[in-house]
Design a protein around this nucleic acid. Structure first.
Lengths: 136, 136, 136, 136
DNA sequence: GTGGTCTAGACCACT
DNA sequence: GTGGTCTAGACCACG
């Protein structure tokens, strides 16, 4: 039945996602200054209003705050950032499980397939002497 | 840098994905007859040309074949279907790993987080006497 | 020292307040349909985007919800409405107390002055045979 | 119907309000000398003409008077000040009652809600050993 | 230079 | 007709 065609996330929502990601990964560190609305707008080739809207969402979710005439800053509340990070991770996990289940794989199978893929890549990297794997 | 935004997948591509999924899950079994172009077009509220294009893609990838005057059928070559299935799965796995790495998680962490989520849900289902988990 | 001049609430915020009030008073009853964005925009002589923004705020606060292509409706969750009502009342109370304290009146004085004003008006109304006072 | 939006009070009117408040609270005592126009203008970061206009309003309402070459003074007529004070208070009372009635509360309810709020805060302050309540 | 608000007008998808 | 999104461009306040 589900023959509806998902339209993509609106630009402002995609912006929210990207910014959120940069915050939870520390690319925009806690308390750090964010790029200005106009700056981001030019860089991303979108209208400043669109950027503004994305920032508004982040602000009302408590991840960033505004100093008038000075700029926007990442929250200092690291626990809030941690919360956001875990929510993001949970969403990705949910998406992965849903996709695999839609293909008929059980959760256990989803895990072992993932592990196999990782192992396989590691072997390949060993041969090549590469190592792309070192994050937390 | 990557400040570009995803636009919609064209409808025909979304159709390809759905049909592929139905084939690899066996909802459209190997050798089975597929719904007619017009049938699908009405069902999905889409132009028949769009359906036609989706079918063409599937045919050139070898997953379906056409018997003139009779209709379109899923390939009998189960290994081809299995290949497609693994490619699909691989894509999802890649997406999941990429998302988790983008958040700063290692592959190992990505696995354990996935396992935790599954375990946690299973416990919850036990309490509720539910069991949503039985696929292959 | 507080020589900063408060600018007024932006229009969209004023709209939020008015709509909220109409909801908590039941002028827009629970589950009832709200005027369309365009309708309100014409009526209030503001841009549809401004109305849209006000509605967005109400929606993210859970007081209204949207049925695509049909319109926007007041939530059916009467407890949510009751909550909003009490928050509104609390804000007015806070404002009154602050104003009176700024003039040097104690809380007790603020109460008795209020009571006197009410009593005085009631006497006047008795003479006139008017009665403007009957709400819950 | 009343879909009109409050625009900003002109700055001079806001100044009038603030000065009036300082007079009725005794911060500027009866007969006392007021700051000079230029002084106030700098302090409030406002054009001297604006301050001048505010003073004019206060003078024509009888709350202050001017001694040429010497400056402006708060009136000695304490009953005039008392009148002003009561008018201010009456305005706040009217605003509060109007707001509560607009939400569907009776005058009696408006009083008890106010009392409850005060009582509740007092309890909280007792626990904390705080006491913010001591004005006239 | 910063953010915030508003308007006008357009286009989309859904029914 | 409904809501939703986006752009372009303007104006304001703060400093």
């Amino acid at each position: 039945m589900p023959w509806d065609f998902a339209d993509n996330l609106p630009i402002y929502a995609q912006l929210v996602d990207r910014l959120k990601q940069r915050i939870v990964t520390g690319e925009y560190p806690p308390g750090g200054k964010l790029p200005s609305v106009r700056e981001l707008a030019t860089e991303a080739a979108v209208n400043p209003n669109t950027v503004q809207r994305a920032f508004s969402e982040l602000e009302s979710s408590g991840l960033i705050y505004t100093l008038r005439t000075s700029g926007k800053y990442v929250t200092d509340d690291e626990s809030a950032i941690e919360d956001a990070k875990q929510q993001l991770a949970a969403a990705h996990i949910r998406a992965y499980r849903a996709a695999m289940r839609a293909m008929g794989y059980s959760d256990e199978r989803a895990v072992t397939l993932l592990q196999n893929a990782i192992e396989k890549e590691n072997e390949k990297e060993e041969e090549e002497g590469t190592d792309a794997n070192s994050a937390m």
